[in-house]
């Protein structure tokens, strides 16, 4: 929710980024304050997924210009793991499978790494089990998924739920959901969205990167940004998403 005087979490100015020498982002500006939900929409190839990966620090992408600060810190001077420890979270469009690492072990190790960073006590496996028992309710996950290898043999919907479970455990200040709605049936979409809604607080924020309006029926954005040609070409309220649903993206391309 938009609130006067909330703390600025992310400030991106004139961001340019390239992959394999091809410039994809051509001057992105975005400010995200605590308590806000932003949606970034756009057609495939508009640069919206690149934007989320650049913020998370994916090594395939090179920042070629502009700045990004996260709670005042220069985001691009931080390694991906430092960004995560500072409270940035990316829910992956295509979650990776990690055979041989159990879901619960991954969550515990990641959680304890962050606890360390925050100067808080680590949890032993038994204590962590209690914490997890609460967290899996957020995404209505069967506890049996905890002892399985990370995402191995999970359906598309289960993988996305697992991403949101990681978000629930790590409690980031800013979560970027990269096409979290893609490949989900309506039930899975409802569960994932409800999970995200439960995690929203006045102190954190979410950026949803999506192609379709339907996710926004469940997670209501404060701002909708339309990306085209590597820039944000229009910003509006949630009603902009409905307009895009009705009119498509072409009218904006023409405007840009």
């Amino acid at each position: 929710m938009i609130k006067e005087g909330s703390k600025t979490l992310l400030e991106v100015k004139n961001l340019h980024a390239a992959v394999e020498g091809v410039e994809i982002l051509k001057g992105v500006d975005l400010t995200v304050r605590a308590g806000e939900v932003h949606a970034i929409m756009g057609i495939n190839g508009s640069g919206k997924s690149t934007f989320s990966k650049v913020l998370a620090g994916h090594p395939d992408y090179t920042v070629t210009g502009g700045t990004a600060t996260f709670e005042g810190k220069d985001l691009f001077s931080l390694e991906p793991e430092e960004r995560a420890r500072a409270g940035l979270f990316l829910a992956f469009q295509y979650p990776v499978e990690i055979p041989g690492v159990s879901n619960s072990a991954l969550l515990r190790l990641a959680y304890n790494t962050l606890q360390n960073e925050r100067g808080l006590e680590e949890l032993d496996p038994l204590e962590f089990e209690d914490l997890l028992e609460e967290k899996i309710k957020v995404v209505e996950m069967d506890p049996r998924f905890l002892s399985r290898s990370v995402n191995e043999g999970f359906s598309g919907g289960e993988k996305k739920r697992n991403e949101i479970l990681q978000m629930a455990v790590l409690e980031p200040k800013l979560a970027i959901l990269d096409e979290t709605d893609s490949g989900l049936d309506i039930d899975a979409l409802r569960i994932v969205a409800s999970g995200v809604n439960q995690l929203l607080t006045p102190d954190n924020a979410v950026i949803m990167v999506t192609h379709y309006q339907r996710l926004l029926n469940y997670i209501v954005p404060d701002y909708v940004h339309v990306m085209s040609g590597g820039r944000i070409v229009k910003t509006g309220g949630k009603e902009l998403a409905l307009e895009l649903e009705a009119r498509g993206y072409d009218w904006l391309k023409a405007a840009a």
Binding site: G57, E81, P95, L106, A110, T113
Partner: peptide, 9 residues
């Protein structure tokens, strides 16, 4: 990259 994005060095 996934593990680094979850805070692992």
């Amino acid at each position: 990259f996934f593990l680094k994005s979850r805070g692992f060095s």
